[in-house]
Amino acid sequence: MTLLTVEQLTKTFGGTCAVDGIGFTIHEGRCVALLGPNGAGKTTTIRMLTGLLAPTSGRIAFRGFAPGADHRSVIGFLPQIPALYGWMTGQEFLIYAGRLCGLSAKEAQIRCSGLLERVGIASAAKRRIAGYSGGMKQRLGLAQALIHRPKLLILDEPVSALDPIGRREVMELLRELKQETTILFSTHVLHDAEELCDDVLIMRAGRIAVGGAVSEIRNEHRQPILTLEIEQDEQSRNWLRGWLQAPPAYVQSTSANGGGARLVVTDVHAARRSLMGELLESDVRFTKLEIGHTTLEDLFMKVVTAS
């Protein structure tokens, strides 16, 4: 069931077009990653979805709300850099957030202790936020976004400020939350998206370059790939250099790869037969010849570096 539909959403700042007529839908219960390099327009898109930024043009329609209506009651938001009142304790802030969302004092109290436990800062609940570490603030930020059980949880780069352990823990938490609510989160790390998400929207320069279910995208853009590695002796290296300068027709693109090369090929059978023949004939001391497929990483790199 569709939860959110975005059509022709555009935002220009002065002359620069930060978001350029994007459109997508988010279905209930899905976990969606908004992926893109720095400056792609992820934060701008998210700010428009949360109502913090008025779109230059376009439409944001939430299920159950008239287009453009105030749908703040059903979203929970964690900004890229969460700003919290340093003079409050973690518990006070969480209860404050809950009460602003319309929870009764008792409900807010119950939700608060549950969430503090869940995000792992229960022991710091009664300490001033000013004394929290970055990771603790991030967790409290996540807790305050969840306090009113939002239908859509929007997170702007939830893990990029965390150390590897913190990152692991927040990702685990998101994996649990996935079962309970719809999630949209932005990241510039493909790995995070692949690990967790059902859908991805890859943005570049204000547009959605590729979007859809991860599995579909993977299949759709899948290409066979040959990975070749050789020993670092003079003769083998010379052969590879020469061969790469004029690769055969079945090679679509090549990239150097440590002691060898990655070849995106069109016809995997022809490639396998022909390359094996050449390797034997020239007596190349190869250490590895692997046949596989392009990953999302390859697609992501292709999309974001395309000019």
Partner: peptide, 8 residues
Amino acid sequence: AMILVKPV
């Protein structure tokens, strides 16, 4: 921004 994304 933290407060005004809530239904305030």
